[in-house]
Write a protein that binds this DNA or RNA. Structure first.
Length: 478
RNA sequence: GGCCCCAUCGUCUAAUGGUUAGGACACCGGGUUUUCAUCCCGGCAACCGGGGUUCGAAUCCCCGUGGGGUCACCA
């Protein structure tokens, strides 16, 4: 790939709770651009709304990003040359820029009460017109003493601009209005301070989701007033919720990204999934490593429409990533997911078990359901053979006789896979039974589980002592 | 309501004027000596509608329709 100018991208969440797939995907795209160009990824905190702020959010967000591997070069915890990276600590900077706009006649104090504003809005709504503050712009606004909101004095005009995802965009002058720069509590609005910060932090790209697109003309107007050349603007479509229409939201059950960590999803799989939700490289490749994504990601190949979050696809993709892992690597990752009975088992034994279930594991939290019988003798469960369409036709005495013969064959085995395979095959001939009957019976007897890896492999891992003990338990119950 | 964005199988998507509209997930069959899974093979299934432009349109233009966003002292 041709060398590109190092990009400085940022992710700027507000600390109002956990992050779900939608928000994190925006962060991922920004991170990919930074890494791809050898630039910097910045984590800035937009904590200017003290009412909505949720305690502990910033830490939670950082944990989420770290888990996914989206590391940042500058940010609220690590600092950097353009700090502070917390907006609440940059108030004097915003004040300077606000004063400058006031001095230039491009900002003014808003004299209205919230009630008066509501009235204006209702009037606009009744007239079926959009509410524009500039229609009510006061002729002689009071001096700004900080107790009133400070508004930008816009210069409405049409705009044509380029969006890295959506392409060429256009709006008329009605999209430009006088918006609040500084609230009456002294904090700046997002609309104002993100522009100052992006400038001072030398951000080259602003990558954000759809809901901001209607505000871009206002930003363009402010950039002009400030004499700033806008950075690359990129609008990422929404990730849609289960209904496929509205954007994914916490209210509709969007999960905390760290829930996926708790359930044993692989961060690489989630990154792959989020990237493929709205982006592809034009080939038929579905599974990408993070390194491949860094190399291949392109903003101009991001989808323009929203993409529905499909958990089935995530499940499949996670399974695919699990299967791509070397057993030893997988073993490290599933460390915290073993069933209670696995406590005393050796590393070697657990690794053997894991190797057998690797291909059927979709996420690590499934491990206990798949492997408990390798560690614990489960109670004999008659439903397993009574509900089996092959076995339920046989009398208890026949089952017993088959199990006795199996026991004798297994007693003679050294429990290596080849030897077990051979003896089980011989047993088929000896008993004249179909594998569906004989193997099901032995499998159920030795596992007491509805599903397990293939019989010889399972027996080899369980070992002779355990296998025979369980055979006896089943014989006693028949 | 104004402005803006979007529109291919159920879902994620490919196609950059010429393809039997391709792939993946899901689903349904079949195979891999039992089960669950993996893997392999097969099947089902889409260009929102109408007009243009063109020899030729999923692709370009226009008009509809549908969905979404925005019009906060939230971001």
């Amino acid at each position: 790939m041709a060398a590109m100018k190092p990009a400085r991208t940022r992710f700027a969440p507000s600390p109002t709770g956990f992050m779900h797939v939608g928000g994190v995907r925006t962060a991922l795209f920004a991170w990919l651009i930074a890494r791809q160009t050898g630039g910097q990824f910045i984590l800035r905190l937009e904590d200017t709304d003290k009412v909505r702020e949720v305690e502990g959010s910033a830490e939670h967000i950082m944990r989420s990003l770290r888990w996914l591997g989206l590391d940042w070069d500058e940010g609220i915890d690590v600092g950097g040359p353009y700090g502070p990276y917390k907006q609440s600590e940059r108030l004097t900077t915003y004040k300077e820029w606000a004063d400058k706009l006031v001095a230039e006649g491009r900002a003014y104090a808003d004299p209205y009460t919230p009630e008066e504003l509501d009235t204006f809005r209702e009037e606009a709504k009744a007239a079926k017109k959009p509410f524009l503050f500039r229609d009510h712009r006061p002729e002689h606004p009071p001096a700004w003493d900080g107790s009133q909101p400070l508004r930008f004095k816009s210069e409405p005009k049409a705009y044509d601009w380029h969006d890295a995802v959506l392409g060429d965009l256009h709006t008329g002058p009605e999209a430009v209005d006088d918006f609040i720069l500084v609230k009456s509590d002294g904090y700046p609005t997002y609309n104002f301070c993100h522009i100052i910060d992006d400038l001072l932090m030398e951000c080259t790209h602003v990558i954000r989701s759809q809901e901001f697109i209607a505000s871009v003309p206002k930003y363009l107007n402010l950039y002009e007033a400030l004499g700033i050349t806008p950075p690359v603007l990129a609008t990422v479509p929404f990730v849609m919720g289960p209904d496929g229409k509205k954007k994914l939201s916490k209210r509709d059950g969007a999960k905390d990204i760290l829930d996926y960590a708790r359930e044993g999803f692989m961060p690489e799989a989630l990154v792959n999934f989020m990237a493929s939700l709205g982006w592809n490289d034009g080939t038929e490749q579905e599974i990408f490593t993070v390194a491949e994504l860094v190399q291949k990601f392109r903003l101009d190949r991001v989808q323009r429409g929203g993409a529905k979050f499909d958990e089935q696809r995530l499940l499949w993709m996670n399974g695919a990533h699990i299967r791509s892992l070397a057993p030893e690597e997988l073993y490290k990752r599933v460390k915290d997911f073993w069933p209670p009975g696995a406590g005393e088992a050796s590393d070697e034994y657990k690794l053997n078990v894991l190797t057998l279930v690797q291909e059927r594991l979709k996420y690590f939290a499934e491990l206990p359901a798949l492997t408990t019988f390798f560690f614990t003798d489960l109670p004999v469960n008659s439903e397993l053979w009574q509900g089996n369409k092959q076995l339920k036709k046989l009398e208890s005495a026949e089952l017993k006789s088959l199990l006795e013969q199996a026991k004798a064959a297994l007693q003679a085995s050294d429990f290596s896979v080849p030897d077990l395979t051979e003896r089980l095959n011989n047993l088929l001939e000896q008993t004249g039974q179909k594998p569906g009957v004989l193997f099901s019976l032995v499998r159920i007897a030795t596992t007491q589980a509805p599903a397990s890896p293939s019989l010889a492999d399972t027996l080899a891992v369980l070992g002779k002592e355990t296998s025979l003990r369980r055979l006896d338990a089943m014989l006693a119950a028949l």
